[in-house]
Design a protein around this nucleic acid. Structure first.
Lengths: 329, 329
DNA sequence: GTGAAAGCGCTAACAG
DNA sequence: CTGTTAGCGCTTTCAC
């Protein structure tokens, strides 16, 4: 046995001090269930005086509610966890969870083994699951036991509410901006194929371009700076007259900037470059990066709050992204 | 009551399948306490077959061990939580914790109200505490009830083991490198005054400079890019012949680069610039930033593992930082 | 070496 | 509106 912790005030103590039964105290503190104003009052006072704080473990055991929120990040390999975006989500989640005395744990969800979710479904310590990089396949494999305690930052389903940036709208805004500033031969470096958001960005880009009667110039990327450099060189090779590059992540955009500099191409004079994400250093690059900013923390907070409170939420909540105009486009 | 979760296999089930009592099964699974080889074997088999996983909440309730790890970040204001460094630590912690089915929550620890720790000490859901930006004052205010379940990334005390980068050594390496590459008028932009690591970097810098008979040129910074710009301008003003700037964070170094560019100063030809941290974009700046890389994830993992396992660890573990030579110095 | 029994702190029927 | 009662799943004395 671990060294005993200092005796903490328990619900029993509160009840005794308030002169009611434990159940009544429980009801009052829980907020629902019947309770006379006087009882309600005495319990509240006693709890405040004694500095009562419920024991989450006991509560979890009694209700079967679970004590932790699992952030499950889908991806082809465990290294998807090592991404500043994941860091931001986990941090926001850990902050929200702290208020409710629950903790966050972080796991990789193999793209091709969505049955791993079953383990989470059966684990009674799991209060809720937040899925990142959600794919159709994962949604299809979602165990029913997870219904009502799973949310997605990304695509959703009837059983899994979605909280996400309006990626399509954001892409249209960026491409629209490039168009309005006179660019006509706009290339795009997309993200990894397996990510659903990639498709949405690609579709939005293609729509805008086709509507404007402009050529599609699309090369695949991988969200890394190296990938951005490679993609940019590929674009320069295939379509030398390109006058704008929309990289679907800031890391790739920064890579694009590096590649162009090395080639002696002036940004934005010869070629405009736009990124996506607004990472901290997008403002510090040379030239400073025009990009789209996403309220990641706000989204994560809303998603986590929804799952912790078992709130009824709309099947999909879209968050606007903001165009951040700087020097590069 | 939340919708009932699917029935999970419980210790009772395992015991029944193994033909022993719950207590015996518990002992076997816990690993200590007496048990005949045969019982030991049957229980292990049954547990494996049934895919038994203990319920952490129940265990926590029975042992009083707690179900979450709190990452407490010391600082003057709640916004200390919003820092990529904190994100990295929390993410690493959440990854390690997942293996033990515990969660992480993140809290601000007011610099001037270390008594907040008492709340954590009394909270029976808290399995352990990881303190960031630890100060002497906080160590002094540490409740005894937290002994044995608290670790620090930063300075430590007899009661609180420390896991930290050898900041002094790292600073000596950086300043030494500047010296060896011929710089003699080396200025430093330090971090916030209240952070203990600031003092260590300052001391190391001063030692090296004094030993070499060189002038001390120190300006305060705040770890932000804006602060780095301001600090650099101040340095240029006060000591126009400065030939190197050591910014105590990459953000400040990047700010320094921006300020110097604006002033038409060539880096590294006129002035060398070195950073500290090796953030992802240090490699992408122009010129690419020479800096020191710290094994943040490794440190966090070790610290969290130590506190979760109640391991006996040395009072202080120092991790080496690595000099990352790039273009700026 | 093993099992019976008590209890961790809380919630939620269910009678009154 | 309130108290009684029965657990949630696990650990841990303490007799046998």
């Amino acid at each position: 046995m671990a060294r005993p912790l200092p005796q903490q005030t328990t619900l029993e103590d509160v009840a005794r001090a308030a002169g009611v039964s434990r159940s009544t105290a429980s009801r009052v503190l829980a907020g629902y269930g019947a309770a006379s104003p006087s009882a309600r009052d005495r319990v509240a006072t006693a709890a405040a005086q004694l500095g009562y704080a419920p024991n989450p473990a006991a509560r979890a055991l009694a209700t079967g509610a679970g004590v932790r929120l699992v952030v499950a990040v889908a991806g082809p390999a465990p290294d998807v966890l090592h991404d500043p975006y994941v860091d931001r989500v986990v941090r926001a989640a850990a902050e929200v969870c702290a208020l409710r005395e629950v903790g966050v744990s972080l796991e990789w969800l193999p793209l091709h083994a969505p049955e791993r979710l079953r383990r989470l479904a059966e684990d009674r310590s799991v209060r809720g699951v937040l899925i990142l990089n959600t794919t159709e396949r994962i949604l299809a494999a979602m165990p029913a036991a997870l219904d009502g305690r799973t949310v997605s930052i990304g695509i959703g389903s009837p059983a899994v509410p979605s909280f996400d940036v309006d990626n399509g709208g954001a892409a249209r805004t960026i491409v629209g901006h490039l168009y309005e500033s006179g660019r006509r031969r706009i290339a795009m470096i997309s993200g990894p194929e397996w990510m659903p958001c990639t498709r949405r960005l690609v579709t939005a880009y293609e729509q805008v371009m086709r509507t404007a009667g402009l050529p599609i110039r699309l090369v695949p990327g991988d969200f890394t700076a190296a990938g951005g450099q490679a993609g940019t060189l590929a674009i320069l090779d295939r379509w030398p007259d390109t006058d704008a590059v929309f990289a679907n992540s800031d890391a790739m955009a920064l890579g694009a900037l590096a590649a162009l500099r090395r080639r002696g191409v002036e940004v934005p004079d010869d070629i405009a470059v736009a990124g996506f994400d607004d990472v901290p250093f997008a403002a510090l690059s040379v030239p400073a990066l025009t990009t789209a900013s996403h309220p990641v923390e706000r989204i994560a907070t809303a998603a986590v709050t929804a799952v912790l409170d078992r709130a009824r939420v709309p099947p999909a909540t879209a968050y606007p992204s903001e165009l951040i105009l700087r020097e590069s486009a």
